[in-house]
Simulated scan of single mutants.
Amino acid sequence: MLHPIKSLLLAVALIAMPLLAHAADKIGVVDSQEVLANSETGKRAMNELKAKFDAKQKELSRQGEEIKKAQDEFNKKAGVMSADAKQKEQAALEARMRKFIEDQNSASQMMDQERNRILEPLMKVFDQVIADYSKKQGYSMVIERRALLYTASGADITADITKEFEAAAKRAK
């Protein structure tokens, strides 16, 4: 019968063997946001999204300011209004606020759909670039940088992926 400490060491060794085998694999690290930010294709996509989002945000800000002004006006004259007029004015303000909230929610959904429409094809190209690059360079695994607490600088393949991504995105057009 094995001693309890020897049994524990044997169990740890058996568990660690597959992990040690993977340690010999070539692992790369990539920052997908940096790839988008540093490639011309990614910059164009992000600028297109920003232009659409900025326009909608300005519209919503204007609408919010108008509601705030209307609320301030109501607060100023509420003391001299009849109860009936006050109630009608309050109901109108609440209706405007509900519509504003609906408009915000609708804009948020529209922006999400637009983001997906623009970025989804790019992410398919990105995924294919990662797969092709990994096969060519012998990587068994490529991990998103944000998922890691630390990585050695030699493992970062973001610059190479950015070049490959740009070339692949131009071919995909």
Rank of each mutant, 00 (worst) to 15 (best):
A11I: 13
T41H: 00
A21I: 14
H3Q: 14
L2Q: 10
A23R: 08
L8H: 04
A24L: 12
L14I: 01
F53E: 13
A51D: 10
E34Y: 12
K58T: 12
L8N: 08
L9W: 01
G28Q: 12
P18I: 09
K26H: 05
R62Y: 09
D54L: 06
S7A: 14
K6C: 07
L9E: 14
I27M: 11
Q57P: 03
Q57M: 04
N47M: 07
E48I: 02
K50M: 08
A21C: 14
I15F: 15
L19K: 05
L10Q: 08
A21R: 13
L14Y: 03
D25I: 07
H3W: 08
A16G: 06
S32E: 01
E34S: 14
A51N: 09
Q57N: 15
D31W: 02
E40C: 02
K43W: 00
F53D: 11
A24M: 10
R62K: 15
D31N: 15
K58W: 04
K56M: 12
K6A: 14
E59T: 12
L49C: 10
S39P: 05
G28H: 05
A11M: 14
N47T: 06
A37L: 15
A51Y: 06
E34I: 03
P18H: 12
N47G: 09
I5F: 09
E59F: 11
E34W: 11
K52C: 05
F53Y: 09
A21L: 15
Q57L: 03
P18S: 09
K52E: 12
G42W: 00
D54R: 07
A11W: 10
A13M: 13
E59N: 08
L9F: 03
L60H: 01
E40W: 02
I15W: 13
V35I: 09
S7W: 05
K43V: 03
R44E: 11
R44Y: 02
H22I: 07
R44C: 01
K26S: 04
V35M: 07
I15D: 04
A45M: 05
I15T: 12
G42N: 00
S39W: 00
N47Y: 05
S39D: 01
D25P: 01
I5A: 10
P18E: 10
K26I: 02
K26T: 05
V29H: 01
R44L: 08
L14C: 07
G28K: 11
S61N: 13
M17K: 07
V35R: 09
H22C: 13
A23L: 14
I15K: 02
H22L: 15
V30D: 00
L19W: 07
K52G: 15
K26Q: 10
D25M: 12
L10Y: 06
T41L: 03
K6D: 11
A45D: 02
Q33E: 07
M46V: 09
G42Y: 00
D25H: 09
M17I: 15
A23S: 15
D54W: 00
L10H: 01
L8E: 09
H22Y: 14
S7Y: 03
A23Q: 12
L36Y: 02
A51V: 08
D54S: 08
S61R: 13
I27C: 02
A16P: 03
K50G: 05
A21F: 07
H3Y: 07
A37Q: 14
L20W: 02
S61V: 11
E48F: 06
E34C: 03
G42D: 00
N47E: 14
A13V: 15
I5Q: 06
S39Y: 01
A16M: 13
V30W: 00
K43G: 01
N47K: 11
